[in-house]
Simulated scan of single mutants.
Amino acid sequence: MAATDFKDYYAILGISKTSSADDIKKTYRKLARKYHPDMNPGNREAEAHFKEVTEAYEVLSDPEKRKKYDQFGQYWKQAGPGPGWSSAPGVDVNNFDFSQFGSFDEFINELLGRVGSTGPTAGRNPRWNYNYRTSTGGPTGFGGFENASGVGDRAAGTSADREGTITLTFSEAFQGVQRRLSLGNEMIDVRIPAGAKPGSRIRVKGKGQLNPYSQQRGDLYLVVEIQPHTFFQFDGDNLVCEVPVTPDEAVLGSQVEIPTPDGTVTMNVPAGIRSGQSLRLRGKGWPRPKGGRSDQLVKIVIVAPKDISATERELYEKIRASRSFNPRSHFQEIHL
């Protein structure tokens, strides 16, 4: 990535580098609601903003990604340490200036003294590309995998499998989607089945590296990432959402329209429900691998109105004057 392509995720969200995880989450939810395509139909600028804030949140909400982003800046995706890749002994990169290199590959080639690098003082070996992972570990990424001329860099017995990530929207993951992907000079069509969840691994047979010993190609594994949704979240196999109700709905009970992944349903809210209680919509959650759906858990949040009419105020005052229920009656029994 060129320096001019660098995205300042903190600036995109309008927060500082010292912002807490809770601040990042609250800010993202506010911006996501503001720019969500459903709230701005046909507004491409809002859609672009929504994608930007979602991308920024995906990085800054993940402690490991945020640490790499803070340390390596525009090269954070290529940078280690990561699974199967530990930093070279005695190398301190905490205050290293990466801006002098055209890419992270150039920095690595410089560090290891490879011949022919295009970095500041050393050379680059065209056979080496860091955008793949073997079964023995290594840097990750998708696209630009090592070409066939680079297999000689591997030790005998190394797996020819490779791994990358694929990012889906909630809708794509729920319904399933077909994607056309580029593997260097090769284009492949990959079908993602309905019900993929974060961390799911999709195996594409025969699309890995060429094993120089068996002359057979390994497999490609795609790890699924799902963009955050403004309403739904995962809770294990189930989906969870928060639904606000008014005090009168909580006291008297009511029927509330609830969004689900495949449409709106009517849910009965029982009289006397408490804020924080969860109701279950059976079979309205996420698709299961062997068929059927998980459940959708609806967390009730009682919301008191801030602006009320004179009539509403009068009625609330009458309720307060005649109310027999005291939710704090047990306080008299509390002592040290």
Rank of each mutant, 00 (worst) to 15 (best):
Asn211Ile: 08
Ser329Asp: 14
Thr167Ile: 12
Ile308Ser: 09
Val243Pro: 01
Val243His: 08
Trp128Gly: 00
Ile308Val: 15
Gly195Cys: 01
Pro63Tyr: 07
Gln71Thr: 12
Leu281Phe: 04
Ser182Cys: 01
Lys51Arg: 06
Thr266Ile: 01
Thr167Phe: 02
Arg323Tyr: 09
Trp286Ser: 01
Gly102Val: 02
Val91Lys: 10
Thr54Ser: 13
Thr230Phe: 10
Val245Lys: 03
Tyr35Cys: 02
Thr54Arg: 05
Asp237Ile: 14
Phe72Arg: 06
Asn268Thr: 09
Gly291Leu: 04
Val93Phe: 11
Pro247Gln: 12
Pro305Trp: 07
Val303Asp: 13
Ala56Ser: 13
Gln277Tyr: 09
Arg66Ser: 05
Val256Ala: 02
Ser99Cys: 04
Ser117Trp: 04
Thr246Arg: 15
Val53Pro: 09
Ser86Lys: 12
Tyr35Ile: 00
Ile24Gln: 06
Val53Trp: 08
Glu257Phe: 10
Leu13Glu: 01
Arg114Thr: 09
Phe232Glu: 01
Leu210Val: 07
Pro259Arg: 14
Arg191Lys: 13
Pro270Gln: 07
Val251Asp: 10
Glu242Lys: 11
Ile188Tyr: 03
Gly292Trp: 10
Gly80Val: 13
Ser275Trp: 07
Phe104Arg: 05
Gly291Ser: 03
Arg328Phe: 15
Thr266Gln: 04
Met1Leu: 10
Ala160Leu: 04
Gln78Cys: 08
Glu314Phe: 15
Gly272Trp: 05
Asp161Glu: 06
Leu181Gln: 08
Leu281Tyr: 13
Glu333Pro: 01
Lys290Gly: 07
Asp5Tyr: 03
Ala79Thr: 08
Ile166Asp: 00
Glu47Lys: 14
Gly144Ile: 00
Asp97Pro: 00
Arg133Ala: 12
Tyr221Thr: 11
Gln227Gly: 02
Pro81Thr: 11
Pro83Asp: 11
Asn40Ser: 03
Ala46Trp: 09
Gly236Lys: 14
Thr140Trp: 12
Ala155Lys: 09
Tyr130Met: 15
Asp307Ala: 11
Arg280Tyr: 07
Arg127Met: 06
Lys17Trp: 00
Val151Phe: 09
Gly73Phe: 00
Pro81Asp: 08
Asp70Pro: 01
Leu183Gln: 14
Lys197Met: 15
Leu297Asp: 01
Lys34Val: 02
Ser254Cys: 10
Ser99Glu: 12
Ala155Arg: 10
Asp62Thr: 07
Asp307Glu: 10
Asn131Ile: 09
Gly102Ile: 07
Pro228Asp: 07
Pro139Tyr: 06
Asp105Met: 11
Asn43Ser: 14
Ser159Pro: 03
Ser20Gly: 12
Ser324Gly: 14
Arg44Thr: 12
Leu222Tyr: 04
Lys77Ile: 08
Ser61Ala: 14
Lys51Tyr: 09
Gly199Arg: 02
Pro120Arg: 07
Tyr9Cys: 03
Gly144Tyr: 03
Pro212Glu: 10
Arg29Val: 09
Asp248Ile: 06
Gly80Tyr: 13
Tyr9Ala: 00
Asp189Lys: 11
Gln178Lys: 14
Phe232Ser: 02
Val59Tyr: 05
Tyr57Trp: 07
Gly150Asn: 07
Leu279Gln: 04
Asn40Gly: 02
Arg323Phe: 04
Leu168Val: 10
Lys65Thr: 01
Tyr9Arg: 15
Val91Ile: 15
Ser329Met: 15
Ile258Glu: 08
Gly14Ile: 04
